[in-house]
C-alpha cells in the first residue's frame, strides 16, 4: 500500500511544480521561441511581399560580407578577448568589494556604500561617452592635465589603440561593480551565521572564514555569472562600444568588435539580413562554448552545472 501512496504523492508534487512553472514556460515560449523563426532570415533575401517563408533562399550569401572582409578574425578576437577581460576583472573586483561590504555590514554606512556603488549602473552609455571624452581627449582632457601635474607627457588616447583594452576594462569595472557586488553580497548575507561561529570556535582566522565559508557559499553565483558571460562572449555590448569608442578609426584595430562592424554594414547597405546571419554565427559559437563548459563543470562539480 505504502509505495503506491508515495508514488502518487510524488506525482502530485511533480504536477504541482509543473503547474507553478507554467506561466513562465508559456511566456518564454511565446516571446522568445516563437520569434526565433526569424533566424531563418539569415539564409534568405527577405521581402515583405514574399513573407518570411517564401522569400528567396540565398544560402550563405548573407555571411559573406563578414567572413570575406579580411578582418573577421580580428573582430572575433577583439570581441572575445575584451569580453573575457571584462568578466574576469569585474567578477574579481565585485567579489572583493562584496567581501568588504560583508565585513562592515552591521553598520548603517554599509547600506550607504552599497547604494552609492550602484550609481554608475544608472548612467546611460551615452553619458558615459561624454564623461570618457572629457576625461581622455587630447585637447583639454582631465587625464592629460593630471599627467601634466606629475611631469609626464600628454598622450593622445584616442589615437593610441594599444591602451584601449585597458581603458575599456576600467570603464567596464566602474560600471558593473555595484551591480555584481550586490548579487554576491545578497548571497553572502544569507549565509547562516552559525557557520561562522563554528569556524571561529575552531580557531580559524578571517582569511579562513573567507576562503572556507564565504567563497564556497557564493560559488554557485559565480558559476551563473560566468556561464552567462560565456554564452554571450561572442556578443559585444553594442551601446558601450558605440558610445565610448564611437567612430574612431584610429583605435579600431583593438576595439572594433563584431557588432559594430555589422552595424556599419547595415547602415550603408540597408540589408538587415546581414545582422541575422552574423547573429546566428554568434549564437552558434556561444552555444558550443556553453555546452562544452557545462559538460566540463558537470564532471568537476555536478551541483553547479547549468543544465
Amino acid at each position: 500500500m505504502k509505495p503506491r501512496k508515495t508514488r502518487n504523492r510524488q506525482t502530485t508534487y511533480q504536477l504541482q511544480l509543473w503547474l507553478m512553472a507554467l506561466p513562465c514556460i508559456l511566456l518564454v515560449f511565446l516571446f522568445n521561441y516563437v520569434p526565433m523563426g526569424g533566424i531563418i532570415l539569415a539564409f534568405k533575401d527577405y521581402s515583405f511581399s514574399d513573407g518570411i517563408f517564401n522569400s528567396a533562399w540565398i544560402g550563405f550569401d548573407n555571411f559573406k560580407f563578414f567572413f570575406q572582409s579580411g578582418v573577421a578574425w580580428t573582430l572575433i578576437y577583439n570581441t572575445v578577448f575584451l569580453n573575457f577581460l571584462f568578466i574576469v576583472s569585474v567578477t574579481f573586483f565585485s567579489i572583493l568589494v562584496a567581501l568588504f561590504l560583508n565585513e562592515i555590514f552591521k553598520w548603517r554606512i554599509a547600506k550607504l556604500f552599497q547604494s552609492v556603488l550602484f550609481f554608475p549602473h544608472f548612467i546611460s552609455w551615452i553619458i558615459v561617452g561624454y564623461f570618457s571624452y572629457s576625461f581622455l581627449n587630447a585637447d583639454n582632457g582631465f587625464l592629460n592635465v593630471v599627467l601634466g601635474y606629475w611631469g609626464l607627457a600628454p598622450v593622445n588616447w584616442y589615437a593610441s589603440p594599444e591602451y584601449w583594452p585597458l581603458i575599456m576594462t576600467v570603464i567596464s569595472i566602474w560600471k558593473g561593480l555595484g551591480y555584481f557586488s550586490i548579487i554576491y553580497l545578497a548571497g553572502m548575507v544569507s549565509i547562516n551565521p552559525e557557520l561562522y561561529e563554528a569556524a571561529r570556535l575552531d580557531g580559524g582566522t578571517k582569511l579562513d572564514e573567507m576562503f572556507r565559508i564565504t567563497l564556497p557559499m557564493i560559488t554557485p553565483l559565480i558559476y551563473i555569472n560566468l556561464f552567462f558571460a560565456l554564452g554571450r562572449i561572442f556578443y559585444a555590448n553594442f551601446d558601450f562600444f558605440n558610445n565610448v569608442v564611437k567612430n574612431n578609426g584610429l583605435i579600431m584595430s583593438t576595439t572594433d568588435v563584431i557588432d559594430t562592424y555589422v552595424m556599419r554594414s547595415i547602415l550603408v547597405t540597408g540589408d538587415f539580413n546581414m545582422a541575422a546571419a552574423v547573429g546566428l554565427f554568434q549564437g552558434v559559437c556561444g552555444f558550443i562554448l556553453i555546452v562544452g563548459s557545462n559538460w566540463l563543470v558537470r564532471r568537476m562539480d555536478n551541483e553547479n552545472a547549468l543544465f
Partner: peptide, 15 residues
C-alpha cells in the same frame, strides 16, 4: 530551455 533563449534571438522583425 530558458538559457537557450540567451544565445539565439529571432531579431526585431520577428518580435
Amino acid at each position: 530551455f530558458l538559457f537557450f533563449t540567451l544565445l539565439f534571438n529571432g531579431g526585431t522583425l520577428s518580435s
